[in-house]
Design a protein around this nucleic acid. Structure first.
Lengths: 110, 110
DNA sequence: GTATTATATCGCAATATTACGATTAAGTAT
DNA sequence: ATACTTAATCGTAATATTGCGATATAATAC
């Protein structure tokens, strides 16, 4: 197989999973951390920063763009990437909702 | 390829990515939500709850166990699963650290 | 003992992901 | 127009994931 049976699950469950999937690679975490830290939107720098090929970085950026957490605008020859603050906050909120507190005593197994 | 170049990234980046990977499937989100909600630790019920085959559920549970967020203890013929509150809180904390606030004005692209 | 129940594991097929070299596209400089 | 720079896309190879039927394993019931 290899394809998830998305129709079996709620919209929320698929949404959370899709978000998690976007974060499920260290290169994409590194890209996001870099963008958050530097604030300034850079693109070619990422190829030097991480030790991955240009095509690979481009692919990871595409995934982050598809999910909306990153946006890019053309700046002459290069493309300027940055965090989309709105989507970033949506992510944050959705994860916070998911990670609500568990009851420590009752959840200690059986 | 298909294998991530984990050696290029920091421990933290790999950790966050690994955690996200564990959450990157709607079935696993559904399992965790069910465990959090019901508190009581159930296992065979999941096969009925989600519409997936027993072998598939078992595989997802294994992944959640490997990552530590879920623990299982043998209860006679069946196995009793539940959230590991300690690991759950670690997840929560790591994501909160990652999702620190972005500056909304300065991050609005280039 | 055999039968039953519950879960894990094996083996396989279909699809997805990761990575990169090569090529294309699109802007800038000369 | 030609050369250069930057990023996206194509094509391909290696590996991972998802899903399930079939088979094992292990505990209980009779």
């Amino acid at each position: 197989m290899g394809a998830s049976k998305t129709d079996l699950f709620t919209q929320e469950q698929n949404d959370i999973a899709a978000m998690a999937k976007a974060l499920a690679h260290p290169a994409r975490i590194a890209i996001l951390q870099y963008l958050v830290e530097k604030n300034v939107c850079i693109t070619g720098t990422l190829v030097e920063e991480l030790g991955l090929a240009q095509a690979t970085i481009s692919q990871h950026l595409k995934e982050l763009k598809t999910v909306g957490i990153v946006q890019g605008t053309i700046e002459g020859t290069s493309v300027c990437y940055c965090i989309n603050p709105k989507v970033w906050k949506q992510y944050k909120a959705l994860f916070n909702t998911f990670f609500k507190d568990v009851n420590p005593t009752s959840s200690d197994c059986c």
